[in-house]
Design a binder for these strands. Sequence first.
RNA 1: GGCCCCAUCGUCUAGCCCGGCCUAGGACACCAGGUUUUCAUCCUGGCGACAGGGGUUCAAAUCCCCUUGGGGUCACCA
Length: 490
Amino acid sequence: MSRPVRVRFAPSPTGKLHVGGARTALFNWAFARRNGGKFLLRIEDTDPERSTTANEHEILNGLRQLGLDWDEGPDVGGPHAPYHQRLRIERHKTLAADLLARGKAYRCFCSRERLEALSKEQDARKEKNAYDGLCRKLAPAQAEVRAAAGEPYVLRFAVQPGETRFVDHVRGEVVFDNKEVEDWVMVRSDGNPTYNFVVVCDDVDMEITHVLRGEEHLVNTPKQVLLYHALGKTPPEFGHLPLMLGTDRKKLSKRTGDTALSDYIEKGFPKEAIVNFLCLQGWALDGSTEVFGIDDLVKHFDIKDVNKAGAIFDLDKFLWLGGEYVRREAPEELAEHVLPHVVKAGAVSEADVRARWPWFLQIVAGERERIRTYGEFAERTAYLFARDEAVVYDPAAENAAKKHERRVDTLRAYLEWLRPRLASGVDAALVRDATKAWVAEKGLKMPQLFQPLRVALTGLPGGPDLFDAMAWLGAPATLRRIEVALERLA
RNA sequence: GGCCCCAUCGUCUAGCCCGGCCUAGGACACCAGGUUUUCAUCCUGGCGACAGGGGUUCAAAUCCCCUUGGGGUCACCA
């Protein structure tokens, strides 16, 4: 007889949503959906200094963009409201007072100076840093008097000797000797409870059955399990997810790459690719299917299949996945996704693009196989929106063009030949065939014309079919760019 | 350093829990070839791993132990 599954994701709105956090949320959500349970969101805003509502909105927004929804949370409410931890503080204080009254916690009057000196001594003796339990020996009545006199104190949890063990669905059973767990601070001297305390209070009140979180919390778990017992509650089951690592094999940090979900959204990774990639960090569908959607995750997710070892964030594979999803999109859909990035690049307005929508769709269809993110589209097509006189020549492309001795003569001859043929616009197929015939007739090798021409039109070393590019550019720009190249490639 | 966690190709992983089907499978990346006006897509092929050492067993990537290596954590932060 097990209780209905209830899991939560409890982000702290002190910054952007980390991709590791996004994956934690995703796995929690999938676990709930897979097991017919509830997924709730709780905002861990106990640090008023660093928590902002802007961050909170961005986090919720990011989760929604990934396709997650929650049954209870700050915006949707629920039977256990409020879902902002800050608003639950009275309950936390009540629970803390109860623990104090029952001798499960005690007042500690030690000054920060003493604590600092203590840890210095411990360092010198190469001992582990931990509170020595001095105030635990104080008689409760005496502590009461000192507190009443206004002496500042913190509330510490009284750890009893023994062993603490818990089930971890990722790692198996984990055991800690309570000697390793210090008498940690539950309530600060300013009256605010600490994370390890409130997280348990809220998880108890919200009837959380499974706690799935990052491995960095593994060492907090014995403290929390002990607290559950002191509260007379059964601890939930745990699952500590492997860390997402940077290329330096350490916890993913800004040092080795972008860490915020929003960074990847801004770069224009397709949402489905983000979800897919996050799944692949620590979990596999079946060992051979790499591209799959969030529905497949729900259908097959089992916490027991989650990997124990940390996973290095593999940007190459992420980009590859991006390409997979980009190529699955129809031009119309892709055009909408790509448009904001084009506008952001600054050379053209959304209205201008929409005014030429069929034209834009052609370009999107043409570039689709060449991009892995929406952002890359904007980069690759920047030449289309450049001034004809100021197309940026990629050095590699320019050098390749300049390898050809007679490039200017060839280009000039071609320009003269081409001009009348574009009089009524560019028909890509026609010009393509005619040009190939022209090249053969002149006894030229293909690259002798095509490389200089490519630079003239696009400035890029690779790219779309040149005659498609001419069509996109239109006759005047095509001719003008070749004219300009006559001088720039001389 | 103490404690805790982890260990299959360069990377993400399948296999491990319930030893034999594993001369260890897939994917990314890389290399080579094909298609092509370039780039890309696409197709074909190649390179490439059970960290080391002991056990247990008829048999170990799979179970146990040790070593080594890596990571996490040691706050009145979450």
